[in-house]
Design a protein around this nucleic acid. Structure first.
Length: 205
DNA sequence: TATTCGATCCAT
DNA sequence: TGGATCGAATAC
């Protein structure tokens, strides 16, 4: 029986759940990735960067479901990103899976990410991670803990020491730059590059 | 119904 | 630094 410490965290501790997830391995469609970078999002009305900040919509519905569910959304019309839902059902809280190291199915991963120059780039970003695992919108709402979904989470092979984890601002968010809810394994080469959100120019009539 | 723009990635 | 590309969210 697998123990899932992050599964038991209340929504108010979604940042702790995010740290708990570092080092865990997510496997899907023949490829396994060790998580090296994650971001926490809260929907308690105090996190304007969260998709659930303004309440439930058709897109973010599964964020309000039980912990251990995947929340998959499409972005820029061509990419998919995945969150692991955390906290009590009825309260939106989730952890975005930002980056990882391919630890199994390397050849398959390379064939799915031909743009990657080095193996460390295979899953060095939330959409790259999804591409390597061959996951898309069909995975939305499925569980990573009940064994019935396309993706499965398994515990770390080696313990991630708290001292080896660093926190910083979340990537690309349009607000709440000051909230240090991005967590990564210090010095890991697969951690994605930090990009501050650049506001888009608007036409003036 | 119309318009806006994004929790990104890649080539330039 | 800009373009791809499309649907959810929001404005009208």
């Amino acid at each position: 029986m697998t123990d899932y410490p992050w599964l038991r965290r209340p929504a108010a501790q979604v940042d702790r759940a995010a740290r708990d997830l570092l080092g865990w391995r997510i496997g899907a469609h023949g490829v396994t990735v060790r998580l090296t970078e994650v971001e926490a999002y809260s929907g308690l009305g105090q996190d304007p960067a969260s998709h659930a900040h303004r309440g439930m919509t058709g897109r973010n519905e599964v964020m309000f479901g039980p912990a251990g569910t995947l929340y998959v959304y499409q972005i820029y019309g061509m990419h998919f990103c995945a969150n692991v839902v955390c906290g009590e059902a009825g309260v939106a809280a989730a952890v975005l899976l930002r980056a990882g190291e391919v630890v199994d199915g390397l050849e398959l991963a390379r064939s799915r990410r031909t743009a990657a120059r080095q193996d460390r780039d295979l899953a060095a970003g939330p959409a790259k991670l999804m591409q390597v695992l061959a996951l898309d919108r069909a995975a939305n709402g499925t569980s990573v803990v009940d064994g019935n979904g396309p993706a499965v989470l398994t515990p770390p092979a080696a313990e991630v020491r708290p001292g080896s984890v660093t926190a910083g601002p979340r990537v690309g968010v349009t607000s709440a730059h000051d909230v240090p809810w991005r967590f990564w394994i210090d010095g890991d080469p697969t951690v994605s590059a930090y990009r501050r959100h650049t506001p888009r120019v608007r036409k003036v009539p």
